[in-house]
């Protein structure tokens, strides 16, 4: 669609700019301030330059947390995106099943994040949880299942929770994309005798590119910034095995009052998310650009 050129459109955008700037720019400047100063109290701060940034480069616990964060977000994307597409493809296209599916899918999304953690504690506890008691009664494991006992158990519980919680969002978005495909496309494919796979590959997948971009970006950002759910479920343990970046940074900032290093790294954190979001965005925009879309 050809757009009108008119700089007065800024008046329509101005309220948004003001309200978001108030909540975004002022706190961001405060964080920048922290990151280059050593703060002893109100009005008592010393300029330290890049000291905190240098300290961050040698903090091995921080590097571990960053590594865990990348593994976690990578797994999240690898599992949730294909699973979400599969669910969207299986969902009914008309009748009462549509509303029923949409409502069921939307429920996990509307549960407060720390309640999600609570649900999964109750569900997987070895003494009262259905999953915990169930898996232990099968006697498959050499030690009883308890997500506080072993890092691997904690990770499995966390991944199960994360997939349970967020795959519905991917499915909902993909479903929206699929519904936007005109029926004529399918009829044409049927006449051509196209297989189910080629219908998916050459019609459905290209048409879902827009919603998939949104899904990948949202899942990437939110999983990389995750805090409340692992905090409620494992508290970062056992040991530090599920201490993700946000959890570590909050410990630094509010637990030990190491504001400078925490602020310095949160700026780097922000830049990492930005950089990867930009890469994903560009990659998804350009992938398949060369081929002819049906």
């Amino acid at each position: 669609m050809e757009k009108w050129e008119n700089n007065r459109a800024w008046f329509l955008v101005l309220p948004v700019f003001v309200v978001v700037a108030f909540s975004a720019i002022i706190p961001l400047m405060t964080v920048v301030n922290y990151s280059i100063q050593d703060i002893f109290g109100p009005g008592n701060a010393v300029f330290v330059g890049t000291e905190w940034f240098e300290e961050m480069l040698t903090d091995s616990r921080l590097h571990d947390a960053l590594g865990r964060q990348f593994i976690f977000s990578g797994l999240v994307l690898l599992i949730e995106i294909p699973l979400g597409i599969l669910i969207a493809l299986a969902m009914p296209k008309k009748g009462w099943g549509v509303s029923a599916s949409l409502i069921t899918l939307a429920i996990p999304l509307l549960i407060p994040w720390n309640v999600i953690g609570t649900i999964w504690i109750i569900f997987t506890r070895p003494d009262i949880g259905l999953f915990g008691v169930g898996i232990n009664s099968l006697n498959l494991l050499d030690v009883p299942f308890d997500h506080t006992a072993r890092p691997s158990f904690a990770w499995i519980t966390l991944m199960a929770m994360e997939v349970w919680h967020w795959t519905p969002l991917v499915a909902l978005l993909c479903y929206a994309g699929l519904r936007a495909i005109p029926e004529a496309y399918y009829q044409a494919a049927k006449i051509d005798g196209a297989s189910a796979w080629s219908v998916f590959r050459y019609i459905q997948l290209p048409k879902m590119r827009g919603v998939l971009t949104i899904a990948v970006l949202l899942r990437w950002m939110d999983s990389f910034l995750i805090y409340a759910e692992p905090f409620a479920l494992t508290g970062g343990g056992p040991g530090n095995s599920t201490t993700f970046l946000s959890i570590y940074l909050v410990k630094l900032a509010t637990g030990q009052f190491d504001l400078g290093p925490a602020a310095a790294f949160s700026l780097i954190y922000f830049l990492i998310v930005l950089l990867f979001s930009f890469i994903f965005y560009q990659a998804l925009l350009n992938v398949g650009k060369g081929e002819k879309i049906a």
């Binding site: 405060t30 910034l225 805090y227 970046l245 946000s246 900032a253 509010t254 949160s266």
Partner: peptide, 18 residues
């Protein structure tokens, strides 16, 4: 859109002050 990407955990203190 970038405002969705700021780690909320670390903006808590500045928020409280603001």
């Amino acid at each position: 859109l970038t405002n969705r990407m700021a780690p909320p955990a670390v903006f808590l203190l500045p928020y409280f002050q603001l």
